[in-house]
Design a protein around this nucleic acid. Sequence first.
RNA 1: UGGGAUAUGGUGUAAUUGGCAACACAACAGAUUCUGGUCCUGUUAUUCCUGGUUCGAGCCCGGGUAUCCCAACCA
Length: 589
Amino acid sequence: MNITENTEEVKYESVSFVEEILRKDLADGKNGGRMQTRFPPEPNGYLHIGHAKAIAIDFGLAKKYGGVCNLRMDDTNPQKEDTEYVEAIKRDIEWLGFKWGNIYYASDYFQKLWDLAVELIKEGKAYIDEQTSEQIAAQKGTPTQPGTNSPYRDRPVEESLRLFEEMNSGQMEPGKMVLRAKIDMASPNMHFRDPIMYRVLNMPHWRTGTKWNAYPMYDYTHGQCDYWEGVTHSWCTLEFVSHRPLYDLFVDWAKIAEGNDKPLDDNRPRQTEFNKLNLTHILLSKRNLLILVNEGVVNGWDDPRMPTICGFRRRGYSPESILNFIDKIGYTKFDALNEMSLFESAVRDDLNKRAQRVSAVINPVKLIIDNFPDDETEVYTAQNNPENPADGTHEIEFSRELWIEREDFMEDAPKKFFRLGPGKEVRLKNSYIIRCSEKPEECIVKDGDGNIVEIHAQLIPDTKTGQANANMKIKGKTIHWVSCRHCIEAEVRNYDRLWMVENPRDEVAAYSKEHDDVRGIEAMRPFLNPNSLEIKTAYVEKWLQTRQPLDYLQFQRIGYYNVDPDSTPDHLIFNRTVGLTDAWKKLNK
RNA sequence: UGGGAUAUGGUGUAAUUGGCAACACAACAGAUUCUGGUCCUGUUAUUCCUGGUUCGAGCCCGGGUAUCCCAACCA
């Protein structure tokens, strides 16, 4: 949403087509100027970034326009659902920063839906079919060929009513009969070819226990629940476009059955569809995510490499950055594939404002300041965040022996290398400017294999931050360090993308097709990054022991990290959220 | 020889509804910097094709093309 100002007075806000429709409905006084939405997850798995887009519009616009958004668990299929997921869903929505009005369950309406179905049978709008699912599928025709009527389509109402009761008795075997709406087997819309309203499952439901044995289908449930709850705007993704006429029809039937004599288009929940969220280098289908978990490719649903909300939280992506990203990609009808770099830039943008700056050395090499006494320590005050001075400061110790990054020293450096090397000067962050001797043998100590094990340098007096010579101009950059004697070890988990290809969904499907229909992990393996997790032991400053799980950090000059929930002061664990943009790395490509 | 939806730079969106194609990301170049980060400046599009209406078309009309969705007793 960009706010464009043409003049001082006139503000024109460009909004999505969804919001535009909402505004028009409000302006037209539809539903008495009331607006109400719902977020309707099926509690059969964890929420992922795709759901966040739906959450952002369902809750976000309700908040913006003074309406309410309710949470409704779409629990019409007890085969897949569980109460464990309900709690996870609630936690994730709250973490994103939203509040629901009420919590409803589709199962709250089972009796009402049943009574409506009985009424529809009586009105001749529904019938019991006792064909097999194969027979029903065959009769359905194809998108290009019309279907044919079921032989049971015109069975007497009384018979259907009796069999419908039987479907719910617990005595009928699943699959034997279904309740179908009598619409039009020749309709060009496949969803109108006598859609199934009820099926027999003979299975207890985690909320309604053993009361029901026949359960309603999504299409027969969603619209009426919206209607009964007073939902005015029912937003969902594009694949439901062709369901909308059926959604409208069932709502109409419900209104007629109630004896509602208002015009049918009045007081009707309005379904509007927007494009799904798609991101390069990630895969969102629940089925495939489950495979990653079950095959141990990742360590559970909240693994920082997972695109789940709980995975993103653990990774260190902030709710604000997720929401800002969603706002940037917008809601349209175009089947877009968004670049991961746009998301990462939203993350950096937000974390730059809130992450506390610290020093951590991940690939250490020892640096010895020859002209600093061995038994002395200096203590400096480091800014927690130069972008936000209100975040305060913390202390960091300096001594003769330091750890610096191995990549910050080069014996034979290219012209544009502005770090340490023979004859070079750099600033130590918050400390002195130091200089290495021009002679390699005076500043480099190697082991028998020729690896550098020690670097020697001299500090230049009075160049410490705040001192007389502090502004001395040098060619070198500022590098970070930690004091060997004062730092602590920490486990650092560097995450990289899980998928090496832009569009894993399509690649996996194509690979499967080309290789005898291989399924599951075998079809994924060729595209998975074998190095998506690198665990390192780093030297970090002591102050980090005071940080709390999920705190946002920036390891200066390296990247954004956060404190893993499993981290303790005795065993610090940090997850890499995203690296800093690295102009040096780019220069060397 | 079914129906529905969509099409604006490398990517995603915008264009106050027929009036100078704008913003963000990415890329490249540069300036500043005690983070090679941030901040700042510059460069990168005849709006899928085609014909028409109009003083004027990304937007309206005709004809194409491409992509996506629909044939679960899933949601």
